[in-house]
Design a protein around this nucleic acid. Structure first.
Lengths: 113, 113
DNA sequence: TTAAAGCATAATAATATTTGCATGTATTTA
DNA sequence: TAAATACATGCAAATATTATTATGCTTTAA
């Protein structure tokens, strides 16, 4: 059982436009830092910082290939997460039927008062 | 087609321990502010601030019942997200087979050099 | 063996997030 | 009508996140 706290940390780490793009690209295969430098159009140190943040949180990892660092996806939740982010929903959750219970001030269960 | 940017904002808003707990509780039914004040063990203004942040981002909404504000889930992605956060994975994504392509410095596609 | 490529690190500045505290408003009850 | 309940708002302080700049290390190529 993985602790929810860890998963929330994971959410925080993922929740950034640049890092989402990094993860998207990594679903298509291995990439090195300068690949991202080209495709993301941000500075190389900034790329490194995002990659390091992702790595220290277990989201990605790399192997060394000469002077390249080849990053790849590690966290299995990521593909599911990216898919969920693109999922379309027809409509909002409907508001609760208006409101026999709360109008009496007696919430289901233990409404104190 | 909902823009990815909006979904990333949604991620940012969700990615907080208190707000995740709020959303968890709302999956079980309508709650008012003081309900959260009890269950979350944080100050009332802090509860309000989290609720307002969730509301201004379209995650939740409320109806007024006398002097109570009864909050409920609105964003249909939330239940799926909470489920995904609890999903267990047997193992990490395996590292790419070591590494015929990158060792030649010829990434699939357009490796420059 | 020098230079360049590829990447990381450190320090700083800018910005955003989060919380705490004090106070304000509306609704209900006494 | 005064007090209490339920909640919001404003402001400041603390903290976290992000980007920038300069620099350093390692590996490869000339």
């Amino acid at each position: 059982m993985i602790p929810l706290e860890k998963r929330i940390d994971l959410l925080r780490v993922i929740a950034h436009p640049i890092r989402i793009r990094i993860l998207e690209e990594l679903t298509h295969g291995v990439k090195c830092v300068s690949d991202f430098e080209d495709s993301l159009d941000i500075s190389q140190p900034n790329v490194s910082q995002h990659l390091i943040l992702l790595r220290t949180n277990g989201v990605i990892d790399f192997f060394v290939d000469g002077r390249l660092k080849c990053y790849f996806l590690k966290e299995p939740l990521i593909p599911d997460m990216l898919e969920l982010l693109k999922k379309e929903y027809a409509e909002d959750i409907p508001a609760p039927a208006c409101c026999p219970v709360t109008k009496k001030r007696t919430y289901p269960g233990e409404r104190r008062r």
